[in-house]
C-alpha cells in the first residue's frame, strides 16, 4: 500500500500549496469587516460615498419622466425607490446614469457603475456579464408566467451583492 500512500501524498501536494497561499491571506483578514469581501472594495467605497447606478427605462420598474438627457437625472419607479432606500441604508448618495442596457452593462463591467436597474428578470441574458441578485419580487408577466425581478451588480463584488440582497429581501415589495 505504500505506493498508494505515495500517490495520495503526491495528489495532496496542490492542496497543501493552495492552503499555504490562502492561509496567510485568511490570517490577515481573520477579523474581516466583511465576509464575503469585495475584491474591488465596492461596498466600502459606496458607504458614505456615491452609489453609481445605471438605469434603463422599463416602466413600471424604472421611468425617466424628464427623458434620458435631463440634468439632474431623477428616475422614478419601483426600482428607483428601492435603490434610493438602499443608498440611504448604506449612507450613499445616488448618482444616476441613463443608457441602453448594452451601454450600462459595459460600464458595469468596466467598473464605472455599481448597480444597474431596468426591470431585469432572472432570465436576463446579461447573466454572464453581471452578478444577478436574488429575486426581490415575483410578479406575473403578460404571458401569465411568474417573473422574478432582479438587479445587476458587478461580477464578484460579493460584499456589495450580499448587502444589496439583504436590503432587498427585507423589503416587502409588490405582492
Amino acid at each position: 500500500m505504500s505506493t498508494a500512500k505515495a500517490v495520495v501524498a503526491r495528489r495532496a501536494l496542490p492542496v497543501v500549496v493552495l492552503g499555504a497561499l490562502v492561509l496567510p491571506v485568511a490570517g490577515c483578514g481573520l477579523v474581516p469587516e466583511q465576509f464575503p469581501a469585495d475584491p474591488k472594495g465596492t461596498l466600502t467605497r459606496v458607504e458614505g460615498g456615491f452609489l453609481r447606478v445605471g438605469v434603463s427605462p422599463h416602466p413600471p420598474w424604472t421611468e425617466l419622466p424628464d427623458g434620458a438627457d435631463a440634468d439632474p437625472l431623477e428616475p422614478t419607479g419601483l426600482e428607483a425607490d428601492l435603490v434610493a432606500g438602499f443608498a440611504e441604508e448604506v449612507g450613499a448618495e445616488v448618482v444616476w446614469e441613463a443608457g441602453t442596457e448594452e451601454q450600462l452593462l459595459g460600464d458595469l463591467e468596466a467598473g464605472k457603475l455599481d448597480l444597474v436597474v431596468g426591470g431585469f428578470t432572472a432570465r436576463t441574458p446579461w447573466v454572464s456579464h453581471a452578478a444577478v441578485t436574488r429575486p426581490y419580487t415575483t410578479v406575473p408577466a403578460e404571458t401569465g408566467e411568474d417573473e422574478p425581478h432582479v438587479m445587476l451588480t458587478p461580477m464578484g463584488e460579493n460584499a456589495f451583492l450580499v448587502a444589496l440582497e439583504r436590503y432587498l429581501l427585507d423589503q416587502e415589495v409588490g405582492g
Binding site: 492542496v15 490562502v22 464578484g156
Partner: peptide, 25 residues
C-alpha cells in the same frame, strides 16, 4: 483509487469558496 482521492476535490472546493469569501476572485 478515485474515491480515495475524492476528498481533495471537496477540500479544494472549500478552499476556493473561502477564498472568494475573502475577496480573492
Amino acid at each position: 483509487d478515485m474515491n480515495k482521492a475524492d476528498w481533495m476535490t471537496a477540500a479544494g472546493g472549500i478552499v476556493g469558496i473561502l477564498g472568494v469569501g475573502l475577496g480573492l476572485w
